[in-house]
Design a protein around this nucleic acid. Structure first.
Length: 186
DNA sequence: AAACCGGGGCT
DNA sequence: AGCCCAGGTTT
């Protein structure tokens, strides 16, 4: 059961998203789970343009988790040094690749990987697979808190429950629009 | 829930 | 140089 206000928000947001979508390499269709994950993993605390500058080269050199597992950590660091956090991120990717040949497709399982939290897990699965999951970063939170100023909850777990009901079957378009709107407005 | 972390960006 | 920031981690 969803209120008229919520239905209206969904419709308007999807409409807005159609006309204002930003294009990035990781948003192209047919990106694999791994490719989307790599982007989301890099995009935390790093401007999208910086990620876009190294992303194609990184995927060429490391097209799979297996390629990461077989590479030296130094080479991995070298590939991502322009992004910053290179040691932290290379270490985490090495750990992930050493234990998994495929990424899990449950958000809870993804979140067990080092340096993967709720945001990266849900965003990866939504954008790579269309999973109907809420995507919530600081900007998106600001959007929601303004639109639903009277009912938007404080606690993160409540926010996830609140948002989960809002995400429509066109989850990809919806969450992309939310990120774009959040980035623009905030 | 709150403090902490590590480093990029802005002033 | 100092502050803020945003997501993840730790307590």
């Amino acid at each position: 059961m969803s209120s008229e206000v919520e239905r209206r928000f969904r419709v308007d947001l999807l409409e807005w998203g159609k006309e204002n979508r930003r294009e990035y390499p990781w948003r192209e269709s047919n990106r694999t789970l791994y490719e989307v994950f790599v982007a989301k993993f890099f995009l935390t605390q790093t401007p999208a343009d910086n990620v876009a500058a190294v992303y194609p080269r990184f995927l060429e050199r490391f097209p799979t988790l297996d390629a990461i597992a077989k590479a030296s950590e130094d080479e991995l660091v070298e590939a991502i040094v322009p992004l910053g956090f290179q040691n932290m991120r290379a270490g985490a990717l090495k750990q992930i690749a050493s234990k998994h040949d495929h990424l899990p497709t449950e958000p809870e399982s993804l979140m067990e990987l080092p340096r993967v939290g709720r945001y990266v897990a849900n965003a990866t699965l939504c954008f790579a697979r269309g999973d109907q999951l809420p995507v919530l970063d600081r900007n998106v939170e600001r959007v929601y808190s303004r639109v639903f100023r009277d009912t938007w909850p404080e606690a993160e777990s409540d926010q996830l429950a609140f948002t989960k009901r809002l995400v429509p079957s066109e989850a990809r378009s919806y969450n992309l629009a939310l990120l774009d709107l959040g980035a623009l407005v905030c």
